[in-house]
Design a protein around this nucleic acid. Structure first.
Lengths: 222, 222
DNA sequence: ACCTGAACACCGTTCAAGT
DNA sequence: ACCTGAACACCGTTCAAGT
């Protein structure tokens, strides 16, 4: 009987550690990612991880960048720059939807490394749209901020929805909270919007905002 | 010699706890807020806090809401709805700048309670601008997402800048990192923008984005 | 060079005991 | 009703010791 050939093929490496960390984050959320859990999954001790990764912050930064970089590769092959920008936006949106923990990283500083990939992708399309160079920084900043900001907020909701089966029932609960906890006289807009919440579509609303900014950018050029 | 009169005036209360928590967060950042530190500052034991606050999450949510609510009161007394929206946006911006830890709360779910205050303030102005009711939800969502998203990102930078005295030197360092860590051929837009980073103005760029969205909203109505 | 795992310092939270 | 502070369970990180 020969030993199983693959038994020790799986030497520890930064890639494998980050990969496993992402798997834990996706499956069980941020709180589940501990060095002990990670080490157990890698059949090693917690100390071993520190040989490949400086600390938990670096682990999260690297995991975030891996996910975002993957999302940004090959999304800009569409018919035109406007469609490409929408594709980039949706790519971020769907990625944060699949990996809600990435949204939490947004407010941590070194996230910038991952953000630059989105920035670059958007910027290239802005040039294609014909935005003058002096306006590209502001336009790009507005688009990237909107995309990441809203995607992160939806990701937070997605995290709450994790164990919820019925989406519209969940949204009705949220709307009910909004209206019950806030006086109608003091919060008329919240009440008006709460009524539309259950049947609204996250992706559609997200894209509507992108289009709003794109319209603004075009109008500014004219 | 009489006892100091005020010695035991300061009974524990949720308000006082939240107030002290905000002071710690502002002064020393998120990591400095522990129940032990908080208790020490309040001259009591960590257990006492749990009589007034359910857990750390509730403490952070309450602190966030206190700060945001304060920022949203009385900002909409301007000359017109457009100016009011800009004032709301700047109010959020400056608040997150003064309390950078609030930005981190953005991605936590119950932040929504605080967000609704911003949403309500924006919504009221959108009606005044004349945005048709069916478009108000999307327009409001876009504005609020942009405002909170970008403000949170700047807050993250502000946290890094905490101990930095020279702002433009700091931005030059960031720009240098961008260009050195990212190939010019692969990241042309990042390189172009890095050159503009040191002399760009956060508040101006932030407002430019708000104006871009407002322009889009107006153009959509026509 | 790379891994092991016990040990350290620290944290959120609980709870029996006090007033 | 409200506070005290020791105790519990758990975590990130370190490091002497192994291979």
């Amino acid at each position: 009987m020969t030993k199983r050939a693959e038994r020790r093929t799986d030497a520890l490496s930064k890639e494998r550690i980050v990969e496993t960390a992402i798997a834990i984050l996706d499956a069980d959320g941020e709180n589940a990612l501990t060095f002990r859990a990670l080490a157990a999954r890698l059949s090693t001790g917690p100390g071993a991880i520190y040989w490949h990764v400086a600390d938990k912050s670096e682990l999260l930064v690297t995991a975030t960048e891996a996910v975002i970089t993957h999302a940004m590769t090959g999304v800009t092959d569409g018919e035109g720059p406007q469609e490409n920008i929408r594709a980039i936006a949706l790519g971020v949106f769907d990625t944060l939807d699949a990996h809600p923990w990435v949204g939490t990283q947004l407010s941590r500083e070194p996230w910038q490394a991952a953000m630059l990939h989105v920035f670059e992708a958007i910027g290239g399309q802005l040039q294609a749209v014909g935005v003058p160079e002096h306006a590209q920084f502001n336009s790009g900043s507005a688009l990237v901020s909107y995309i990441l900001g809203l995607a992160a907020q939806y990701a937070a909701s997605a995290r709450l929805l994790l164990r919820e089966t019925d989406r519209s029932a969940f949204l009705e609960t949220v709307a009910a909270q909004w209206t019950s906890q806030h006086d109608a006289a003091e919060f008329p807009f919240v009440h008006q919007v709460a009524a539309q919440l259950p049947e609204h579509d996250d992706r559609e609303q997200f894209l509507a905002g992108v289009d709003l900014i794109l319209t603004g950018i075009r109008a500014q050029q004219a």
